[in-house]
Amino acid sequence: MESKTETEGGVPEWAIVELQGLIQTKKESLEGPTVVGDLHYYSRNHHPVLILGHHVLNGKEVKLDQPMAVIEKVNASDKTEYKVRAVVKKKILFKSRPKPIISNVAEKV
């Protein structure tokens, strides 16, 4: 088995949002995208804050110790090729415990 990775000139840079545990959505729409949460940054220090369902997560922008490549498996005729779609050099890390939103008036959005 032999396979190749290729880049097409300038490689885009993507980012990773790292969360503890996993996200479960109540229902996933088959027709369209499913909203996960709202990502904001504080103006003051650019720390990210993610509103995820009933939780608020405070995070940090982190430079990866080691950058990552995003590679995509492409089936060529006799060989399996991987294309480098992007590189990831930074992530937004949410490692603190999510803070529940305590609200007396549950608002429908």
């Binding site: 949002v17 959505t25 996933e28 729409s29 088959l30 027709e31 369209g32 995208p33 499913t34 909203v35 996960v36 949460g37 709202d38 990502l39 904001h40 993610l50 080691q66 950058p67 990552m68 490549a69 995003v70 590679i71 995509e72 498996k73 492409v74 991987y82 779609r85 590189v87 990831v88």
Partner: peptide
Amino acid sequence: TQILRFPKPSEKNDNLRLMLL
């Protein structure tokens, strides 16, 4: 405000892998 979404299932790319460099 960036709204993070799961794309509709048909657009999810299962052929991607991450590799440290």
